[in-house]
């Protein structure tokens, strides 16, 4: 039960640039996954519309 550390960030940004890099990587990966998924679905949708035309 030691006294709790009171210090708050002093003249520092709340999020470090390292944390920002991590977050941006995660965002990029999520976006890339979404793009890959969309591409797979787009190919399938195109195939549908082609087959329904014939």
């Amino acid at each position: 039960m030691a006294p709790h550390d009171l210090r708050r960030p002093f003249k520092r940004p709340l999020i470090s640039d390292q944390e920002r890099r991590r977050q941006q990587s995660l965002l990029r990966q999520a976006q890339n996954r979404l793009d890959a998924q969309r591409q797979a679905r787009f190919l399938a949708s195109t195939a549908f519309s082609l087959s329904s035309q014939t």
Partner: peptide
């Protein structure tokens, strides 16, 4: 575990 988590993400990058 942060290294592990990031590596998992990189496996995804490499797969794509």
């Amino acid at each position: 575990y942060q290294v592990c988590a990031i590596t998992v993400g990189v496996v995804g990058d490499v797969s794509r």
